[in-house]
Design a protein around this nucleic acid. Structure first.
Lengths: 153, 153
DNA sequence: GTTTAATATTGTAATGGTTACAAATATGAG
DNA sequence: CTCATATTTGTAACCATTACAATATTAAAC
């Protein structure tokens, strides 16, 4: 028997309307997460920038606006979001966890030169040998050279 | 345009004949890797056990037979094998790198309870949006509960 | 068989992302 | 306002991996 998994929805586009803080607060509340200012800003960064940042990148960016924020809060909050299943953790490289608030099924491509992570649309995927396995997470990670780094070469 | 990737070959079966040290030595030689005893034993473990071990698991097992072996040698050797492209590194979890000497295209399933890593056959995979991307590595990682751990629950 | 240069291995210190934890702060109910 | 609870902070600890310098082994040349 073969398990057939298809992309259900379109990935978010750069042109999609960004979420505002009110919407984010409402969303976090629905998920049983009290919408503190830090949590709002961290989720806002993830959902609107969609650059698959590391915890440290989020910390560095938010520190400009919220100088008192601490690294521990960023890590705590990201773990909370993951536990509540509103973000996924990407372990493309073993020395850096990246975070993604887009939960629709898609893959990732990391450029080995510039380090950028791109979304990849998965048209279809068929697996076999998974009868009686309970699949809770799926990750498709590609590595290589992105178009602009291919040229540099 | 859609990139279509299919499994080219069957995965190794448990019943396949294990490699002996002579064959491994010959193989390493062909790859330009001098077949020292430690390298032979590390590759033997990877190719014949196929349990996707961590560096430390390999170290602990080989230490019984080669008490003088050091962790650094295991790490050095695994990195050498990866650089020479005869093993792949699995970053299913960010806190542990696992090694796999099977290079035919297949996925991995890690059980969140017992921690075991199983091979998954990929019947087909279609991706889009990768024009002009140069794909050098592909990883499909699943997590969940394996059949026996599903029952325990 | 020695010498010599190159390669492999070892033990340990350092690295760096992440987590643990206890203290300090903020929040919300009564 | 006060208390109990939840959040945030700063720092120390953790731990897999890497760096590195010293030692040992190998292979080739003599």
């Amino acid at each position: 028997m073969v398990t057939n998994m298809r992309a259900q929805t379109k990935l978010r586009e750069k042109t999609d309307k960004p979420w505002n803080l009110d919407e984010i607060g409402q969303f976090l509340g629905q998920q049983g997460i009290r919408p503190s200012f830090h949590r709002l800003k961290i989720f806002e960064y993830l959902i609107n920038e969609r650059t698959h940042p590391t915890a440290d990148e989020i910390y560095e960016v938010l520190k400009k606006e919220i100088p008192a924020i601490s690294r521990a809060t960023v890590y705590n909050t990201l773990r909370l979001f993951f536990d509540r299943k509103i973000v996924q953790v990407l372990n493309i490289e073993k020395n850096e966890a990246r975070y993604d608030a887009t939960l629709t099924w898609h893959g990732h491509f990391k450029c080995l030169l510039c380090g950028q992570v791109y979304d990849v649309e998965i048209e279809s995927l068929e697996l076999s040998g998974l009868d009686n396995y309970q699949v809770l997470e799926k990750h498709l990670d590609l590595k290589g050279l992105c178009p602009s780094c291919s040229h540099k070469k």
